[in-house]
Design a binder for these strands. Structure first.
Length: 315
DNA sequence: AAGGGTTACAACCGCAACGAT
DNA sequence: AATCGTTGCGGTTGTAACCCT
């Protein structure tokens, strides 16, 4: 599957020029496509200043005739060094479909679980490709639902297996396109309280991702994309806000499920026990040699990622 | 080769939330 | 409490590139 990659140049939409007197009076703010020169200015500024300051300052200080909003968008959607460009992999596509079935059009939340992808990119991909594909699929089969609420468990397939991971119970559901594990565990707050919309209640689906604050919550929802293989979950730690200091240590629980890329990353990540002397959590890659098995080079992604800037987790 | 239709995606817009004053 | 500036989000638009006839 995958998209055909188009190499769009920045001449797609001509940058607006302001020649009219009224334009100049209004303020010489450019719109439209960014020129390579503008990109360079913004990039240089962001690198030089570590991205500090508000966006209107960035626009001004970088010598750009753009509004801060435009700069922000350009940076987030295009210039950020951690962006992963190119076609979506099959796994990404399936993850997007799965997440969309749970979250609906919350593109930023979906994007937060796809390292290197932006909400805009995912939204575009969804609207231009997946939506149509699902539509054509739904005309031939009636088994798939894509609306956020339509995935509620009452209308989902029967739970066909009780499971137990690290002492927490849960259920295994088999959907049309993926397997899904829902665990009944208290959920902790993320490091960004204002963005806590789905992680602060108990007994919810914990979506596949690596949380910022130093614990591996993905251990509990296990979307399955391919054939089964075994996965070890090691040293899971739960933040105080959730399980109040409980630490599940190196139990090496093996579970019988599958999900490949995302799981590959997560199974390769270890959260160091908070009882360590240094009292700071560190996301470790345990099996570096396996990183290229999945699509995401996690170390690379972690570099310069604004949303992952602080790795000195204080437990 | 031409041109009309479609696709992909960069960028804009409006709105809401939030913090500072 | 009201206002203002900033940020972030989701919907929408515009258009280069591509496809098809």
């Amino acid at each position: 599957m995958g998209r055909t990659i188009r190499t769009k140049t920045s001449t797609m939409r001509k940058p607006e020029t302001f020649t009219k007197k009224t334009d100049i009076i209004k303020k010489k703010l450019r719109k439209g496509l960014w020129s390579p020169e503008e990109d360079e200015k913004l990039m240089n500024y962001m690198v030089r200043n570590n991205g500090q300051g508000c966006w209107s300052d960035v626009a001004r200080n970088a010598g750009l005739e753009r509004c801060g909003k435009s700069c922000r968008l350009r940076w987030i959607n295009y210039l950020r060094p951690d962006l992963k460009r190119g076609a979506f992999s099959n796994q990404e596509e399936e993850l997007i479909i799965h997440l969309h079935s749970l979250l609906g059009n919350r593109w930023s939340q979906i994007a937060a679980r796809l390292p290197g992808r932006t909400d805009n990119e995912i939204k575009n991909f969804w609207n231009s490709t997946i939506k149509k594909r699902l539509k054509s699929m739904s005309s031939t089969t009636t088994t798939t639902s894509t609306s956020p609420n339509a995935s509620d468990e009452s209308s989902s397939p029967e739970p066909n297996k009780e499971i137990n991971i690290l002492g927490f119970s849960g259920q295994y559901h088999q959907h049309a396109n993926f397997n899904h594990y829902t665990m009944n565990v208290p959920i902790f707050a993320s490091s960004s309280p204002s963005r806590n919309t789905i992680f602060n209640t108990a007994n919810i689906d914990t979506l596949p991702m690596l949380q910022h604050s130093g614990y591996l919550n993905t251990a509990f929802t296990l979307p399955c994309f391919s054939q089964s293989h075994q996965v070890d979950i090691k040293d899971c730690y739960f933040e105080n806000g959730g399980v109040h200091g409980n630490v599940c240590k190196s139990e090496n629980v093996s579970i019988d499920y599958a999900f490949d890329d995302m799981n590959n990353i997560l199974s390769n990540c270890n959260i160091i026990d908070s009882n360590n002397d240094n009292k700071s959590g560190v996301v470790e890659n345990l099996f570096q040699e396996q990183l290229n098995f999945g699509e995401w080079d996690f170390e690379e992604l972690m570099k310069d990622v604004s949303s992952f800037t602080s790795f000195d987790y204080s437990f």
